[in-house]
Every structure is written in structure tokens, then in C-alpha cells.
């Protein structure tokens, strides 16, 4: 518990504290703030959605009941549609390109883009690139024809599934494993760490390494709260946030790589795409870009594409 006079920082998130990339980062942040800012600030972490889920936490933050959260980037589409760029399929070639974009002027500007609505982005936290799994082999987009895919609530992801000829389905995360296994839905998309952590690979024919999208989180705070802190407290806090962000983001690729290897070691089938097959996916998804170009901004898309080329 916090001592009298300390600034209380409540951080509510939805994963475990020691296995998931986000949970690990949150625990590290908690530890460093409580060690280094003892007497000035104190952080309480509420993991596993015990306090709020990712939809409610942003409301609670605007209300002043929570100070930190790290929902997935799609959750910010309600605040500004620019964030749809991260859901657009094949927008980024790999996690390096994602990172370069986030560090670019365009990416940094997005951190400040929600100030008017009361949020301040503090940093992008990686999970990693999304893969696709289903109850049959997926090699070209038409393989997904007629399949039912569980997706998060997001117009972009719905459009993406429809572009593949698949039927997007909504389902509570706790029912997904059972849903896949019993066949209520046929497939899903997620990062390696989630596919391994939730054991989805056990109940799927296989996972295709599509790297088609990205699942990252945005560490956010209430801007009025942040501005109300004493300058030295704020500076020290932000410094710790940046250091933790850098440290953990460096690890994320390794975490997902290890998860992928664990999937294989546990007998899960992993399929890689040839350059041709991958191009077929990219082509199939192109109409999705056109549909959301207006929301995302052509300049943002161009910036992302330039980065893709550069990292060739």
C-alpha cells in the first residue's frame, strides 16, 4: 500500500504479471517506480482485468480513477482514427519497420494526437506481429474462404476478414480456446506469445506465419493528471517510463521467437509462406487500405511505406 503524501499511480491491465510481454513490462515499471521514487510516488498494478478490462479502463482514466493503462492500439481508434494504421493488414513489413514508424515524427505525433480528448500517449509497448491460425491449412487467402474467424471489435479487422472471404466473429476472450476447440469458430489471429500462452495452437490445424498485422499496446495516461504533477516528479516518472519501454521492447522479439519455438516444441504445426503466397495475401488485403485511407491519412501510410522500403 502507498504511504501518506505519495502520488498514487494506479496501473490497470489485463494480462498476467510475469509471462506476458505487457505484464512483465508493467511489473518492471512498478518495481522501478516504487524503488526509485519512494516517498514521492507509489504504483499499484491491477493485472488480469481484476479492476478494469481494456474497454472500460480508458473511461476510468478520463474519470481520474486510473492513471496508467496499456490497451492494444485498436482501442484508440475511438479517440482518433489515425490509430487504424496499426490494424491495416501488411502495412508494416516486420517489427523493425513498426518500431521505426513509431519512432518517426508521424509515430511520435500520434502519441500527442489525443490530448484534446484527455489522453497522453507515453510510449508504444510491443507485443509483436500477428499470425493466423485455423482448423485447416492456410497458405493463400482463398484458404480462408467461408471460415469463421474470431476477431477483436475493430472495423479494420472486420474488413480484413471479409477481404479474405472469411466471416468475422465476436467472442469473449475467455471463450476463444473452447470456441476453437469445439468448432464454434474456425480460426483466429494473434501474436506468437498469445498463441502459445493461451494454447490456441493445440486446438488448431496449424499456424501460418503471416506477420500480417501488429499487436502493440499504447501506454497512456490522463493528460490533466500528468500536467498536475510536480515537475521533478513528472520528469523522473517519464524517464523511468522511457527506460522501461526501451528495455522491454528490445526483449519482445525474443519473447515471441521463444513462444514460436515453444509452439513447435509442443507439437504445433507452423507454416511459412513463400514470397508468392505472401504476395497473394498482400494483394487480397489491398482493398482494405483503400477503405480506410481517409481515416488513417495518406501521409501516414506513405511514411510507413517509406520505412518498409528503407529497411530492405
Amino acid at each position: 500500500a502507498c504511504d501518506e503524501g505519495e502520488v498514487v499511480i494506479k496501473f490497470s491491465h489485463v494480462t498476467n504479471t510475469d509471462k506476458h510481454p505487457k505484464g512483465i513490462a508493467a511489473s518492471l515499471l512498478e518495481q522501478r517506480v516504487n524503488d526509485e521514487m519512494n516517498g514521492k510516488a507509489c504504483m499499484e498494478v491491477f493485472p488480469n482485468s481484476t479492476l478494469y478490462n481494456d474497454d472500460k479502463v480508458l473511461e476510468a482514466m478520463l474519470q481520474g480513477d486510473v492513471q496508467l493503462a496499456a490497451p492494444s492500439l485498436s482501442k484508440f481508434e475511438k479517440f482518433t482514427k489515425q490509430f487504424r494504421i496499426f490494424d491495416l493488414p501488411f502495412m508494416f513489413k516486420d517489427i523493425t519497420a513498426v518500431e521505426a514508424f513509431q519512432a518517426s515524427d508521424a509515430g511520435q505525433a500520434m502519441l500527442d494526437s489525443m490530448q484534446k480528448r484527455g489522453l497522453q500517449g507515453l510510449g508504444y509497448w510491443h507485443n509483436g506481429m500477428k499470425q493466423m491460425s485455423a482448423n485447416k491449412p492456410l497458405l493463400v487467402p482463398t484458404d480462408a474462404n467461408g471460415l469463421k474467424f474470431r476477431v477483436q471489435s475493430s472495423d479494420v479487422l472486420v474488413a480484413q476478414m471479409e477481404a479474405m472471404g472469411a466471416s468475422p466473429q465476436k467472442m469473449a476472450f475467455s471463450e476463444v480456446y473452447g470456441g476453437l476447440q469445439q468448432g464454434v469458430v474456425d480460426g483466429q489471429e494473434n501474436t506468437w506469445s498469445n498463441i502459445y500462452g493461451k494454447k490456441f495452437f493445440e486446438v488448431q490445424d496449424g499456424t501460418t506465419e503471416t506477420d500480417h498485422g501488429i499487436l502493440d499496446y499504447l501506454l497512456v495516461t490522463n493528460i490533466d493528471w500528468l500536467n498536475g504533477l510536480d515537475a521533478d516528479v513528472r520528469d523522473q516518472f517519464l524517464t523511468i517510463v522511457h527506460e522501461v519501454t526501451e528495455t522491454r521492447n528490445k526483449e519482445s522479439t525474443a519473447v515471441n521467437q521463444a513462444a514460436k519455438e515453444s509452439v513447435i516444441a509442443a507439437g504445433g504445426v507452423v507454416r511459412e509462406l513463400t514470397a508468392e503466397q505472401r504476395q497473394a495475401w498482400v494483394d487480397a488485403m489491398k482493398p482494405v487500405w483503400a477503405k480506410f485511407e481517409g481515416d488513417v491519412g495518406t501521409d501516414n501510410i506513405e511514411a510507413a511505406q517509406k520505412i518498409n522500403m528503407m529497411s530492405n
Binding site: E59, Q63, G64, D65
Partner: peptide, 21 residues
Amino acid sequence: SDSSTASIAQTLFEAFEGHST
């Protein structure tokens, strides 16, 4: 606690909105 009464109303609604099971 420091939490707001609004958070109580939010939780009341969340009982339905957040627990589709």
C-alpha cells in the same frame, strides 16, 4: 478510497456490458 462515485455507476453498468457470459 480516492475513487469516484462515478466509478460505482460505471461498475454497475459494467456488470452487464463487461460480462457477456
